[in-house]
Structure formats: C-alpha cells, structure tokens
Design a protein around this nucleic acid. Structure first.
Lengths: 247, 247
DNA sequence: CGCACGATTGATACCGATCAAACGGCGTGG
DNA sequence: CCACGCCGTTTGATCGGTATCAATCGTGCG
C-alpha cells in the first residue's frame, strides 16, 4: 500500500507503438498492464486496490495448490513460473518480465510456484476486486481478454517449439523471444540480460542443463551470439538466429 | 443463415454440472459457448450474427495466413488446428470437439489451418460483430475471458506434457484428456472415439506415427486399454492410465 | 481381384540424456 | 590478502530411447 502518488502522465494515452496493453513508460512501467487503458476514475479505483511490493531474489510469491488471491503486474526484475511434478520433474512454464501480467488463469488455485529471480518489483491486485472492476469497466475486461488471447498465441507458439524444434532451434527461438520482450520495454535488444540460470532455461525448453550449455556454445562458435558474461547474451546476427527457426 | 428457430429451452440456465461455458444440451449443443450465458435480447442479437454450417470431411475452413473473419463453435464432429512450418514440419495445435470455441486469438490472421476431421457441424460468427456484441453485453465478454483462461491453463498443461513426459505418458494423458472432453458432452468416457488418424496424434504430441502406434500397443499389452477398432479406444483402467501421469 | 493408403511391426542409427569430471567465480574463513 | 570450498557452468564419454528406414499387414475402394 505504500507507493508514490500516481503519476499524472499515466493518464495520457500510451505511445502509439506500445501495442495493446504494452508498457506505459510514462509512469515508469508501473502496473502498466492496466494503467494505459483506463481513465481517471478507473485509475483511482485501481490505486485503492493495488499494493506495490519489492521482492528479494528467491522470494516465493505463491506455491502451486494455494488459493489464487491476487494477480500481479511486474514492473522491475523478473519472475519464474515453475511446476513441479510428483515424480520430481520440473517445468518452467514461463518468465514474467516488466510489462507482464501474471495471473490469467481459470483455476481456483495456483498451478505454478511463482518465484522472484532477482530483486523484483511488482504490483498486486486482489482477484475478486479485479473481477468487480472488470464488470464496472468493460474496457478493462476487454483489455484483459486481449491480453489472454496474446498469451494463448504465445503458448501455442511454444507448443510448436517443444514439439518440433531441435535443441539449438529452441535456444535460438528463446533468445529472440526474450530480445523482443526486452525491446518492448524500450531497451535495444542486441545485448540481452538473462535473469535466469541455465537450469531454468533447460526446464523451460524441455532440455537438460548440459544441452543448453552446449547449444549456447554452438551458437557462439557459429558467430551468431557472444557470451560476454554468464548472464548476458549479445546477439550478433539476428537474421542468422531467425534462419534457424523453421516456422 | 438457414437454421431452425432458436429453442426456447436454451434460455434456461444450463445444468449445474456443465461448468463455465459448458455445453448447453437443451439446444442440441448449438452455439453452446455463448447460448448458456445470455438472456433473450442477447440471444436474438447472436442469432442475427450466426450462420450454421455443415462441413464434409476434409473441408478446409481456414488457412494459416488468411485474415481472421470468423469465430466458430463446434456442435458436431471435430476440427483440427494444424500448423505447417517452412521446413515441412507439422504440428497439430489441438482438436476442437463439440462444445469447443474456436478463434480465441490476438492475431489478425489465422495461425493455423482449420480442417474438418469428419462431417462437422459448426456455428459461425463474425469477429467484429462478436466484438461489438462483447462491448454491448459485458456478460459475454466476461465469459469469453473465462474461456480464454481455461484454454490458457490447458495449453500450459500441454507444455508440461511435451517438455517432460515420455511418449507413453503423453499418449495416456492424451486419452484421458479426450475422455474428459467427451464426458463433458454427456457421453460415458469408457469407450472413446478417436476422430483423428494416428499421424494427427503424433503431430499433436511431438512424436512419430510409429511411436504412437507402439505406445498404444504397449498400453493394450498392459491391459490399460483395448482397441476394438482403429478409431476407437476402450479405457479399461482409468486409474492405471492416471498413474502414468507424473503430474 | 488388385491397388492404395494408413497402421503396425521390425532393424538400425543418431541425437540428447545421463554420468562424470574439470573449470570458474564468489563468499567465507583462516 | 590468500586459500579453500561451494555452486553453477562447461566440457567430455557413454548409454538409451526415439526417429528413421524398411517391410508387412489390413482395410476400403476401384
């Protein structure tokens, strides 16, 4: 509940190129998934609902099986959504970066653990309050539907990747996806921060850590990327990476 | 546009166990994704928008890349959503059975080919008309959001399957999923019709035809299923199949 | 009856998982 | 300040499972 007064610039329309529900840079990407589509009255209602939070690295925001009480918008840092199976198998369903909305689900309980990768800032809304708001402001509901449809498209793309791409292709696809996501936040995509360890990439792409490592070195050897630090990738040849994608 | 007058029973609430957006058996599962949630005026508006269609087996309803002009609800038969990559790789994103809503996507053009598996009956709505209706009836928009969230959950489940399950586990999971879907339509799930050829199952689960065949015989040998006909599966041991799922 | 096509069964090859080891950075403690 | 140890990453060697190639079977249709 302790957060600075809402920036008035946030009420101005977002830049034309920000796309549907894109980040609203005016308000320092604060609960950007919704702020860019609402008018004054609605923003006030949202402010009353929202709580800002800063999470230390490794903080567990939610565990699978717990009742879903909140939805979140990420404004800084990164989250990972992890599913652990009874057999000990691990799957990283996705990563939430600044601008992402977390919590679109039809289930009453969390399907994933939600964990902070680094120091992460986010904005929290109660689900039932959000639903009430949705009925009061059809505009918001519509934007949420758009967002859900986008995520659906994204999930289907990923199905294709998991089903029919080789490990190297998956890594290339993953890097390009991350670059695009980072580009949406305004930063150039050539130098790419990887907020997650190799194991998370592996569990995200259905691979092992060793294979991820090997594929990264393969891409480096081919001159497509550089690895100046462990948690950073320079994309040297976008076209070359895209050429790997058989889509 | 040629379809029988709208059954009045359709205006009554759907059976309690039909779940959100579940099939509305009263109106013979006709455009069931929406009919069960609307009142008289809205239903009339929908009728004006909807067109019933019956497709012969193999009919192509849409091709990837074409502009998306319609959404559909399946009332009989089955559709498959196919994506073909430049490299010739094939991915079946999913199957639409009676009760399913096809067309939740944020893209302006189709991401998949949509093809009828057998003789298939469906109901067509224009997307922009549907959107107008959504703004006029927030109730509808909300139901669409719920449906989108459900599909999102389902897609994420499938990601887990593709990333971390063995071929046999994927087949078992697929059969149980299909059984559950068929059960929603009211029919008992023990005897399961497979509307699609083996190749579609393979391309849906990221396998080859040969592996699908081998896994089915494996399950049969273990006494978990029977295969009385090629396009039919009897589930003999639900618990046994579920035990294969490591989730 | 013969053909065509999809499904099944069989034999082999290859790729990624697994097992194992070495490397590197970083924090701690001596 | 340096030595050590921990943990994540990288690299290496081997194994196994699934794709691939190939052949047979079965069914429906001409």
């Amino acid at each position: 509940m302790s957060w600075p007064p809402f920036d008035s610039p946030c009420l101005t329309p977002p830049p034309a190129d920000s796309g549907p529900l894109g980040p609203c840079m005016h308000c320092r990407v604060r609960h950007l998934a919704v702020c860019s589509v609402l008018a004054g009255e609605e923003v006030q209602a949202l402010d009353a609902l929202a709580g800002a939070q800063v999470l230390a690295p490794g903080t567990v925001l939610a565990r699978q099986g717990e009742p879903r009480r909140h939805v979140y918008t990420v404004t800084r840092g990164a989250l990972r959504l992890v599913r652990l199976s009874a057999g000990g198998r691990r799957q990283v369903a996705g990563f939430a970066l600044p601008g992402d909305f977390v919590g679109l689900s039809g289930a009453a309980v969390h399907q994933h653990d939600i964990e902070a990768l680094g120091e992460t800032e986010l904005c929290r809304f109660g689900v039932e309050a959000m639903q009430r708001l949705g009925t009061r402001f059809p505009h918001l509901q519509r934007k949420l539907l758009e967002r859900a449809c986008m995520e659906l498209d994204s999930a289907r793309d990923q199905l294709m990747a998991l089903a029919r791409m080789t490990p190297t292709e998956r890594i290339a696809d993953f890097l390009l996806r991350l670059a695009a996501q980072q580009a949406r936040s305004g930063e150039p995509a050539a130098s790419l921060a990887l907020p997650m360890p190799r194991a998370d990439i592996a569990d995200h792409l259905g691979l092992t850590v060793e294979t991820v490592s090997r594929c990264l070195t393969t891409l480096r050897t081919r001159g497509l990327i550089a690895l100046p630090e462990i948690y950073r990738v320079e994309i040297l040849d976008f076209a070359g990476l895209e050429a790997l994608n058989p889509a």
